[in-house]
């Protein structure tokens, strides 16, 4: 049984999805304020790590890592609505790439496991 990461297409799939996903995020007025003035290259690399993780790939950030990385955004008001918007953009990007709905649901479920840590709950 191939893993989710393999079914999605592994690293090349991350490569294909990252620009699409990050472009949607930057164009989404609900959340793009959090990305004002950040270094784009570094941000793209972070988004690749994030996608690899929620694709079930070989990136494992601990809950503590996720808390630390987002604490400054939580201080600026990052909330459930923002988290939902990111997951929505992720799903839309994968749908645009022709990923099957059940795989998108699996990705969304993996993203969901990070919610409490990302939002510092």
């Amino acid at each position: 049984m191939p893993t989710l990461y393999e079914q999605l297409g592994g690293a090349p799939a991350v490569e294909a999805a990252v620009d699409l996903f990050y472009r949607k995020v930057l164009l989404d007025d609900r959340i793009n304020g959090f990305f004002e003035g950040v270094d784009m290259d570094r941000q793209i690399a972070k988004q690749k790590s994030f996608l690899t993780m929620v694709f079930g790939g070989p990136v494992s950030y601990s809950g503590q890592d996720m808390r630390r990385a987002h604490a400054h955004l939580v201080a600026r008001g990052l909330n459930d609505g923002h988290f939902d918007a990111v997951v929505e953009n992720l799903g839309a990007s994968l749908a645009e790439l022709g990923v099957a709905a059940e795989l998108i649901n699996e990705v969304a479920a993996l993203a969901e496991t990070t919610r409490a840590d990302v939002l510092g709950k």
Partner: peptide, 27 residues
């Protein structure tokens, strides 16, 4: 280093001599 999976690119280094495996330049 961070992700250990070729995604975060934190562990970027330069080869001064020798053959660079193609897989190590992914992305």
């Amino acid at each position: 280093h961070s992700c250990r999976a070729g995604a975060c690119q934190s562990c970027l280094v330069q080869a001064k001599s020798g053959a660079v495996p193609a897989a190590a330049q992914q992305g």
